[in-house]
Simulated scan of single mutants.
Amino acid sequence: MIRRFGPRLALVTAIAVTCAVPAVSAQQAEPAPKPGRLINAGDVLSGELNAMKARGGKRDKRIAFYQIKSEPRRLPPPSGLCNLETGPETFQLITSSDAQTAQLKGFIGKAISIKVDEVACAQDAGQMSEAVVTKWSVVTKH
C-alpha cells in the first residue's frame, strides 16, 4: 500500500502546482487602475448623454434628469476621487431652467460635450450618478 501512495502524491502535487502558477501570475500581471485626469472649472467633459426619470419634488412627481457617461475623471479637492479608485465615470447634469432641459433633449443618446463650471461628488441618496455637475453649458452644436 505504501508503494502506490508515493506516485499518486507526486502526481497530485504536480497538478496542483501546475494549476496554481497561472493564477498567481495573472494576479500579478494586472496593473492597478490609474486615476483619471483632473477636471477643473472651465474644462470640457465629453460622453454619451442619457435621460432618466425618478420620483421626487412636489407631490412625488416624475422628474427627468440627465447623465453623461465619460472616462474616469478626478474632481478638485476636497471631493477628490469620490471614494472610487479611478474617479467618477457618470456625471449627473442639474438643469436650472426649462431652456437647459430643452437644449439637452436633442442630445439624448448622442455624444455631447459640456463646459463644466461647478462639479462635486454625489451626496444625496436620490442621485443616480457618482458626481454632480451643477453649473454647465453645452459646447457642441447639432
Rank of each mutant, 00 (worst) to 15 (best):
Q92H: 07
A122I: 01
M128R: 09
I63F: 02
Q67M: 15
Q127S: 08
I108R: 14
Q27S: 04
P76H: 09
Q92K: 10
P72Y: 02
A111W: 02
H142D: 12
N50E: 12
P72F: 00
M1V: 13
A20Q: 13
E89R: 15
V21F: 01
P77E: 15
F107M: 07
I39R: 08
V139R: 04
F91K: 08
Q92L: 13
Q127A: 04
A111C: 00
A99G: 05
T86A: 08
N83T: 07
S46N: 06
V138E: 03
L93Y: 02
Q100L: 01
K105D: 10
A20E: 09
R37V: 08
N83F: 11
I68G: 02
K58R: 12
K69P: 00
A131V: 10
I108A: 09
Q103I: 00
Q123R: 15
I15F: 04
T134C: 02
P88H: 14
Y66L: 02
D60P: 04
Q103G: 04
L81T: 05
I68V: 14
I15D: 06
A29E: 13
Q28I: 15
C82Q: 07
A23V: 11
P77H: 09
P35W: 01
R59K: 12
D124H: 03
K58N: 06
G80Q: 12
V132S: 01
S79Q: 09
V116I: 15
H142Q: 11
R4M: 07
A32L: 13
A23Y: 15
I68K: 06
Q123G: 08
P78L: 14
T90R: 11
H142K: 15
N40Y: 03
K141E: 15
K69S: 06
K135C: 01
A10H: 04
K110E: 10
D124M: 05
R4E: 09
N83A: 14
P77T: 10
S137N: 14
W136Q: 00
Q27E: 03
A125K: 08
G80A: 14
R73W: 12
H142S: 13
L81I: 00
P77F: 15
Q127G: 02
A16Q: 09
L45P: 01
K61Q: 15
L11S: 06
G80P: 09
G36E: 02
A10N: 01
V119P: 00
S79N: 14
D124N: 07
N50K: 10
E48G: 02
L9K: 05
D98N: 12
K105M: 03
R73C: 07
V24K: 14
N50I: 05
V133Q: 07
S137K: 11
N83Q: 13
R55M: 05
C82T: 09
Q28P: 00
L49N: 03
A26K: 06
V21W: 03
V119S: 01
N40W: 03
V138S: 12
K34M: 07
T140P: 02
G6L: 11
L93G: 00
A51V: 15
K58S: 05
G87M: 04
D124T: 02
S137R: 13
L45G: 02
L9P: 05
K110S: 10
A131N: 10
A16P: 06
C19M: 15
T13F: 05
N83P: 03
